[in-house]
């Protein structure tokens, strides 16, 4: 834990001073261009999309952590993300790639519960 913290602080000093963004613009452009209707992208649009992606990653991680179950144990888990995708409107477009993952036993339990609570709907 200590080690990784130190090295990330060092990275910030190396890249942070001059670099406004940390994600590679070239890779973001590749993803954008993989969309078939896109013919060309100007420099500012490319920069903005890259920056927006960074903000998005921060926002997704933080919202999931704050709404998640791992606050006491200081962890962010997959299920926190899946829940956020399901519950927050702005993250709804992620539901396909962040399907809820649960144990069969838990599923059966929750199914029973749901049936008890809202019988007719399920």
């Amino acid at each position: 834990m200590k080690m990784s913290h130190n090295s990330s602080a060092k990275d910030d000093q190396a890249s942070g001073s001059k670099k406004p963004i940390s994600l590679p613009i070239s890779r973001v452009r590749l993803i954008m261009k993989s969309s078939p209707d896109v013919s060309s992208i100007n420099q500012d649009a490319l920069f903005l999309t890259t920056k927006a992606t960074e903000l998005f990653v921060q926002h997704l991680a933080l919202s999931s952590f704050n709404n998640g179950s791992g606050k006491e144990t200081n962890t962010l888990s997959y299920s926190d993300l899946a829940n956020t995708a399901q519950e927050a409107d702005t993250f709804h477009f992620l539901t396909d790639i962040l399907p809820k993952k649960i144990l069969a036993q838990d599923y059966l339990n929750s199914l029973e519960q749901m049936q008890e609570e809202e019988g007719a709907d399920y």
Partner: peptide, 17 residues
């Protein structure tokens, strides 16, 4: 790195997450 910067210090992020 971006995730770590966004979260409070010492939060563990699972590989899957």
């Amino acid at each position: 790195r971006i995730i770590k910067e966004a979260l409070p210090d010492g939060v563990n992020v699972s590989k899957e997450a």
